[in-house]
């Protein structure tokens, strides 16, 4: 589904990604784990074209999309949910969803507001509320729903559990499981192993812009040294 190889990216002179490479298989939930500042968000942004990769390839369903503008990458079928949520605060819930809307995709059940309100019932109760007057948890659901309106085949979720109350995190776990059941492939980034193990099949560990370890979640749980070296704070 997604095959990232030798990806480099810079912010000005700062070298953030130093040859990142990993894959996400169709239908799986992979998690990009790493500490603050390890390059998780930049990896997501580089895949999405929001940070232009300076070298390397990003193959999505066999096509190299590295260097394309973000809107083409989105239309190719990658949905991006940013860490800071970036809700349009002046727009209502329904309008936010409308911005994300893209044509239906062959072989995929297309998303609409009604289906998304089934997935996130609390959003349905506030369809005309401006995004700026929602709680953090509600905004997190809206930002995922908005991206789903583009009918992606692969979802990039940047730190979806950050700053959320435990009860909301629980709902997020259910939502991700439901999306996986729909056949969606998901790449999420996390610092929080606890959340990651609840939803992911496979983990990729990034540190200082390089991939240091990759394997299944059970393997990671068993590998104390790996967790100690790359994840403990």
């Amino acid at each position: 589904m997604l095959d990232v190889a030798g990806l480099h990216a810079h912010y000005g002179r700062a070298h953030i990604l130093d040859g990142v490479g990993f894959t996400v298989a169709a239908g799986e939930v992979a998690v990009l784990l790493g500490r603050n500042g390890s390059g998780k968000s930049t990896t997501m942004k580089a895949i999405m074209g929001l940070v232009p990769p300076s070298a390397g390839s990003v193959r999505f369903e066999g096509r190299d999309i590295a260097g394309q503008p973000p809107f083409r990458i989105a239309r190719a079928g990658i949905g991006y949910v940013p860490e800071e949520r970036r809700i349009f605060t002046d727009l209502t819930v329904l309008e936010n969803l409308d911005v994300g809307r893209q044509p239906a995709r062959a072989g995929l059940r297309s998303w609409d507001a009604a289906r998304l309100f089934d997935l996130f019932p609390s959003l349905g109760a506030m369809r005309d509320r401006p995004g700026g007057r929602m709680s953090g948890g509600e905004q997190q659901m809206l930002t995922i729903a908005r991206t789903l309106m583009g009918n992606p085949r692969l979802l990039l979720l940047d730190e979806p559990s950050e700053g959320l109350a435990p009860v909301i995190i629980e709902r997020m776990v259910h939502a991700i499981a439901a999306l996986k059941a729909e056949g969606l492939s998901i790449l999420l980034s996390e610092q929080n192993l606890h959340f990651a193990r609840l939803v992911s099949d496979r983990a990729v560990i990034i540190e200082k812009g390089r991939i240091r370890w990759a394997g299944t979640l059970p393997d990671l749980i068993a590998a104390d040294d790996v967790r100690e070296q790359y994840l403990s704070v």
Binding site: M48, L50, P70, F71, A74, R86, T89, V99, G100, Q102
Partner: peptide
């Protein structure tokens, strides 16, 4: 709606597939 969204955050609008 797209114009109002782009007024706030045009990068996000393009990440949602809008040219």
């Amino acid at each position: 709606t797209l114009v109002r969204a782009a007024t706030q955050d045009r990068e996000m609008v393009s990440a949602l597939g809008v040219d």
